[in-house]
Structure formats: structure tokens, C-alpha cells
Design a protein around this nucleic acid. Structure first.
Lengths: 248, 248
DNA sequence: ACTCAGTATTGATAAGGGTCAACCTTTACC
DNA sequence: GGTAAAGGTTGACCCTTATCAATACTGAGT
């Protein structure tokens, strides 16, 4: 936590050492002292291997986690084994907001590839956010954004057909990847067909068939987990009308 | 805003004059001064007639609203007219949290019967919550609870069959009504079959048929909007396994 | 390089729920 | 109080997606 002093504020974005969190999740507009206060709170990052749980449903909630690198899914499970994936998280995105409510996590968070997260002890963030208004505001906005995202998923699950869901899903991924500087139209899926299906309320066979269909129509190219979007406009046409439906 | 001085703290619950909000939504544990600070922020309530919009999607976000009396739905609409009801709100429940994210409401809120709400100007609540830690904490918890509720709706929409959805819906309503001191097994639906369907991702005909089916089985009695739950355990059996699925 | 388990594709068939339509009931409004 | 509009029920039929099944591919680990 040293170099801040030598670096102009506006470039902190790219030069913070400990954690990419601040670039991606936290508000600009903090002064140096506030930044260093934040530094004392954010714990060093934790590494997880593919398949590892970041937290389990029911576990006591202590911290939020921000993805530094890698890819996660969050899911709620019913007693009889059915599971609903409630979201996929990539770098800069936050997990654990559901735990604040009861003090226990209400979902599982699982790494879909080797990943790294920043831990944000919530109690200390809460305290700190009292002293730093813009931080408090930012947290309210983050939680609200999650609510909006969830509402859009409801719209997707409640109103859209399989093809529309898949198209919305691909376009949403594409948009989030390009925000992070990755190619928008050429990417690797980090999740299985079954996990996509669980998120979208479809069976894995339907996901597979729909991807094949899109490929036959020349809209996308599918090579297992490697996806290329060829005709983005056609995909967008499919969901125009049911729009709003882009989470995150 | 007068009688607080004469009334012991623990009974504020029942005796606040201006607004039932504090009883239902806000944390206990405020002292008298904090309570009176809150009083200066909470605006007098607003009355709405059935069918009236409390706010529209896209409208600038200024305030949260808590239902005092009556019943609301919130919904997001797609361009082509499809609408997804994202929730039904009854007394004590909050609307508008989605607006914090962008500064604009992302859904419509519509009164399903003549209703009364408290307005909570968000900017002032935010400021106040800096000075009153328990208020800040309470807001975080409220927002988190909304996230958990939405996740459970996703589970419902993504995994459950029509009968399970309807059963979960009825049981959820029942539970929330009984929390408020109303009969748990005998109530009037405030929403149409179509609105139920929109919330549950079903068509109105399916809602109607499923209610008829439950009635034939002797599990419930249906007289238009008047519903009686006769065999609650059978309804619960239907959704055991997919449980978790009770919002709010 | 081989194997086994997990993952994906594709086809055939079935079921659940959507769609269309007719009819009935209630509510709201003139 | 009568009439129109909205809401609700029920039936027949069809479409989308789930289910079941066979096969193929991939990749991690030996």
C-alpha cells in the first residue's frame, strides 16, 4: 500500500497494487486518505481452484467478495437437488450481497475456473461507509443494480422463449466481456450447457439444440465452448421487444 | 410529531401517528432524538386510487415508498407490450429500491386497490443513515432481503411447474397476510388471474385451471377472488423439495 | 497413449402449458 | 338499472420444450 503517494489520482485506476476491486467496483472520487482507509479494510485476495466453493448457502456471512480474475456462478439449491443458477460473475463483479439480509449466505458461490477474489469484510465496510459518503452511496447503488439485474432475469424467465433466452444470454456475456476489454464477438464459455440451462430455465438439451440452430442460421459459430457471434444484429432482433433483458 | 415524548420507546410501535412505516419497515433501536430526526424526513403519506401509478419506469428516482395500506404491483414492461410483474407489495413493504442504481425507476408501481404510501426522500434518508448506524444497517438489510426474494422468484420461474408455482404463491401470500394479523387461510386476492400469471410466468388460463384443479382436489375453495386454503399441508407437500421458494 | 467420467450433440417421443375460442360472471359507468 | 367492458372458466388443439436414449467428443489423470 505504498505507491499511491507517487501517482496522480486519476491514474490510480490502473496502478493499484493490491486488488483490482477499486478499479471496477468502487467509486471514483475518493481522496488519498480515503483510499488508504479502504486499503486497510480490503483483505488480500484469495485464490480458488476450479470447482471450489467461495461460500456455501447457510454459512455465516462475514464478507462480500469481488472477483479479481476468473469466473464464478452463484446458485440456490432446493432440497430435492434441483438447482437454480442465479448468476455468473466475472472480474469486478460482487458476490455475497444476499447474505446481508439474514447474516447467512443464501446461495452457493462456486469458481468455474481458477480464480482470485478480494474479500471485503462487510462490518468494516459498513463502518467505513459512514465516514465516506460516496462509498455509502456506491454500496446502495451496487445493491440496487443487483435488484435491477434480478428483475431483468425474471422478465427473461417469465416471458421469453428458449431462442430469445439464449440470444439474450449470449449478448449479455458479449457486452460484459467487451466492457472488460475482451473481444465482444469471440469468447470462451466458462460454464457448461447444463449451467447455462439452469440459469435460463431450460434443459441442457435445449441449450445445445438452440446453439446448433443459431449456428445453422449462420448467426454464431460454435466450437464446444468457443463461441463467435457472427450476426449480432440478428440476435438482437430476436430479443427486440423483450429487451430490458440484459442483466448486469 | 408530538406524542413521542410521552410514550415509552417500546410502545412507539403502535402509537406513531404519521405513518405506519416505522412499525413495519424501520429498525427498532432508535432513540427519541433519532426518531424525531426520522420524522422530519418522512413525508406525509400519499393516497392513490386503484389503478393509479405510484411511479413509472424511466421516471426520475427521488424517493422510496412504503405501503401503509392497500396493495401494489411492480412490473417491468418490454417494448412489444409484454409485461412481467416482479412483485406484489402489501403494507409495510418497500417499493423503489431499483431506482437507486441509475437514478431512474426501472419498473412501474401500480396500486391494485385504493392505497396509501409513505414517501421517503432517498437523499435525506441516505444522509440520515450516516448519522444513525442502525438505520444504515437496516437499509442494507432491506436491500439484501429484496435480492434474496428475487433469487427465490428466479428459482420458482426456472424450476417449478405450474401447480408448484401456484401453491408457492398462495402459501407466500398466506404467510405474509398472517404476519400482518390477517387470516392466513381465508383472503381476497387483490390481483387478477392475468397478473398472477404474469408474476408466475404462466398464462391466465393456466392460473384459472390450476386453481380449479386445487379446488376439485379439496385443497382450496375458490370463489372468484375469495380464496380459502383448506389443506395447507397438501399445498406444502407440493412444493416441498422446491422450497426456499417463498419470497418476501 | 489409454481410460473413464463428464460433457455435448442429436433424434424420437411425450407432456405441459400456450393458444384460440366460446361462453359466462362481475364490475363499472352512463 | 341497464349495458358495455373487463375478468374468469372451460374445452379443443397445437407447439414448445422436457424427457429418454444412443452416440460421440473432450480432457484430466494414470
Amino acid at each position: 500500500m505504498s505507491e499511491h503517494n507517487h501517482i496522480p489520482l486519476h491514474s490510480l485506476k490502473v496502478s493499484c497494487s493490491s486488488c483490482s476491486l477499486r478499479e471496477l467496483c468502487l467509486p471514483v472520487g475518493l481522496n488519498r486518505e480515503e483510499m488508504s482507509q479502504l486499503d486497510t479494510v480490503i483483505r488480500q485476495s484469495r485464490r480458488l481452484k476450479r470447482g471450489e466453493y467461495l461460500f456455501h448457502s447457510g454459512e455465516s456471512f462475514k464478507s462480500l467478495f469481488a472477483v479479481r480474475t476468473g469466473f464464478f456462478k452463484t446458485c440456490v439449491a432446493s432440497q430435492d437437488g434441483r438447482e437454480q443458477v442465479t448468476g455468473f460473475q466475472m472480474s469486478g463483479e460482487l458476490m455475497g450481497l444476499d447474505g446481508i439480509s439474514t447474516g447467512n449466505h443464501s446461495c452457493d458461490a462456486i469458481a468455474l475456473e481458477d480464480s482470485e477474489v478480494c474479500e471485503l469484510p462487510f462490518g468494516r465496510m459498513e463502518t467505513l461507509s459512514r465516514d465516506i459518503p460516496s462509498l455509502q452511496h456506491h454500496f446502495y447503488r451496487l445493491m440496487s443494480r443487483e435488484i435491477v439485474r434480478d428483475q431483468n432475469v425474471m422478465l427473461l424467465l417469465g416471458n421469453m422463449k428458449a431462442e430469445e433466452r439464449i440470444a439474450a444470454f449470449l449478448l449479455n456475456l458479449s457486452q460484459r466481456l467487451s466492457t472488460r476489454g475482451f473481444a465482444a464477438n469471440d469468447f470462451i464459455l466458462r460454464m457448461s450447457r447444463e449451467e447455462i440451462g439452469s440459469f435460463l430455465g431450460l434443459k441442457l438439451e435445449t441449450v445445445s439444440r438452440t446453439l446448433s440452430k443459431f449456428q445453422q442460421q449462420g448467426w454464431i459459430a460454435v466450437d464446444h465452448k468457443h463461441i463467435q457471434l457472427v450476426k449480432v444484429d440478428d440476435l438482437k432482433n430476436l430479443i427486440s421487444g423483450c429487451s430490458h433483458a440484459n442483466g448486469h
